[in-house]
Amino acid sequence: MYRIKDEWGEFLVRLARKAIEEYLRTGKEIEPPKDTPPELWEKMGVFVTLNRHNVPPQAALRGCIGFPLPIYPLVRATIKAAIYAAVDDPRFPPVKLEEMDNIVVEVSVLTPPELIEGSPDERPKKIKVGRDGLIVEKGIYTGLLLPQVAVEWGWDEEEFLAETCWKAGLPPDCWLDEDTKVYKFTAEIFEEEYPRGPVKRKPLIPQSQD
C-alpha cells in the first residue's frame, strides 16, 4: 500500500521544478502553495534528483540532494532539496535556468532509515535491490544511495553495499566492519517522463534472488 498518492507525487515533482526555476530567476525560496494537500505537511525524508534527458542513466545525473531523516514537513523539504540539488551539489556546477528545458525532475519520498542488525556478513541477505536504499555510517563518514541507483547500475546486494561505502569515502569492504552501521530504507519515486512532461510513479524491478 502506497503512502503517497500518485496525485501527491505529481504535486511534489511540479513543486520541485517550480522551486528550482523560481530560485534560478530570483534567488528566493518559494513558499508552499496554499493548495498543498494536508498530508504533505507531515515530516518525511525526501531527495530530489535532476537527470539530463535522453542520456543513459549512468551519465544522466545533474544533481541530487535531500534529507534522509524526517526533519521538515515534506512540502518544505521538497522545495529545499530541489534548490540544493540544482545549485549546491558539490559534484556539479550550479544548474543554469536554460538547462531546465533538458532536465527531468525526480522526487523520492523516503521511509525512516532502519538499522540492519546482526552480523556484518549477513547484511547482503537483509537487503533487496529494487526495494531498499542504503546508508553507511562510520565515524564522521556517511554515504547514501537511493534504491533506484542499484537498479540503474545493475548491482547485486554486495556491490550495492560496496558502492555505498565508496559514496561515504570509505573502503568498499567497510560494510564488513562491526563498527560500521548500515541502514536501509524504501522510497516512493515520481519523475517527469520528459522535461515538464507527465509525471509517473517510477517502478523499481527487483533483482531475481537465485
Rank of each mutant, 00 (worst) to 15 (best):
G197F: 05
W166H: 08
K43F: 10
Y72I: 15
Y23I: 04
Q207R: 09
K125T: 13
E7R: 01
S108V: 06
E7K: 10
E114H: 02
V151A: 02
A150N: 06
I71K: 12
D35T: 01
K200S: 12
Q207K: 15
K5G: 10
L110Y: 10
L145K: 04
E114N: 08
E159N: 11
T164S: 10
W8M: 14
E29S: 07
E193T: 10
E7T: 11
E21S: 02
R201F: 11
T26K: 10
Y141A: 01
V46E: 04
D156Q: 11
P33R: 01
D88K: 04
R131D: 09
P38C: 09
D121N: 14
G27C: 02
W41N: 06
D121F: 09
E31I: 12
K96E: 12
P124A: 07
T164D: 05
F160K: 11
L145D: 11
A81K: 01
F190P: 07
K128V: 15
P94S: 14
F160T: 07
E152Q: 01
E42M: 00
K128R: 06
G143M: 03
L170E: 01
I103L: 13
G139P: 03
V109A: 08
K126P: 02
G9L: 15
I135P: 15
Y84T: 13
V105I: 02
V48S: 09
I205V: 10
Q148M: 02
T180S: 09
A85K: 09
P57G: 09
P147L: 00
R25Y: 02
G133F: 05
G197D: 08
V46K: 11
E31R: 15
E188A: 01
Y72S: 11
R131V: 15
P73F: 06
I103G: 05
G45D: 04
K28D: 13
T26L: 10
R17G: 06
V149Y: 12
V109L: 08
T164A: 04
V136D: 02
H53Y: 13
I116Q: 12
V151S: 13
W153K: 01
R91L: 14
K28C: 07
Q209C: 13
G130L: 00
I30T: 12
A82G: 04
G143A: 00
K200L: 13
G45T: 08
L134Q: 02
F11K: 14
P56F: 01
L69Q: 05
E159V: 11
G197N: 00
A77P: 04
P90A: 12
P206Q: 03
M44Y: 09
L145F: 12
L115S: 09
P33S: 06
P94V: 04
W155Y: 03
A82Q: 08
E188S: 07
E117A: 14
I20N: 15
N54S: 07
G154W: 05
P57C: 15
D173R: 05
R17P: 05
V129S: 06
D177Y: 14
I4Y: 00
A59S: 04
T36L: 05
